[in-house]
Computed example of a mutant assay.
Amino acid sequence: MQDVPKAEQKAELRRTLLKARQSMSVRDWREKSDRICSHLQTSVLFAQAKTILAYFSFRQEPDLSPLFANTKYRWGFPRCVGKSLHWHIWEPNDTLQFGAYGISEPHANAPSIDPAEVDLILVPSVACDYQGYRLGYGGGYYDRLLNSPEWFAKPTIGIVFDLAYLPQLPIEPWDKPLKTVFSETGLTGKG
């Protein structure tokens, strides 16, 4: 696989892992998602946060929605605008809309979140490796976000199922490792 360009390696790995994730039964998906939520709630990074950026589950990503009812936290969710993520406050009674990729997102008029207010980012991932590197969906949204000066130092937790927690991913110069990784078996990363 050394001769295959990294972009092709990533694309093939992405296809394989998304297929494996989507073949999981709804019951397994729910149980594993609930275990991830339980582990997150006992995490120091999570417990100490006030404003947390998260995501709405898409294509059988780990579902963190049971956490969103906890009003101890201020929750932020992204909207895809051009090539960037714009973050908005969201509360359980707020309505959502479907964005460009069919992903649920807050309305454009929802209050924005200033990066200075953010304590933690829960990062959706196709896969993560033991060094904290992440394989996303290929759009580069989180790569651009996490490499920008106002977001660079924010604590990050990659969220994956064990089937997508791998020894090593192909990485590019712009890839930035996440602080830690959580799966249904708990804290698995560097954290």
Rank of each mutant, 00 (worst) to 15 (best):
C80V: 15
G82Q: 08
L85Y: 07
L85V: 06
H86Q: 15
H86Y: 06
W87L: 10
H88E: 01
E91I: 04
E91N: 13
N93Q: 15
N93G: 07
N93F: 10
D94W: 12
L96C: 06
Q97N: 09
Q97V: 13
G102C: 02
S104P: 13
E105G: 09
H107K: 12
A108F: 04
A110W: 00
P111G: 01
P111N: 03
S112W: 00
P115N: 13
V118N: 00
V118M: 00
D119G: 10
I121F: 00
I121C: 02
L122M: 06
V123D: 12
S125G: 13
S125Q: 10
C128P: 08
D129Y: 11
Y130A: 08
Q131K: 09
G132N: 09
G132W: 03
Y133E: 11
R134G: 06
R134D: 05
G136F: 11
G139S: 11
G140Q: 12
G140D: 14
Y142N: 02
Y142H: 03
R144V: 05
R144H: 13
L145P: 06
L145W: 06
L146N: 02
W151M: 02
W151Y: 14
W151S: 05
F152D: 07
A153P: 00
T156A: 08
G158S: 13
G158Y: 08
G158W: 04
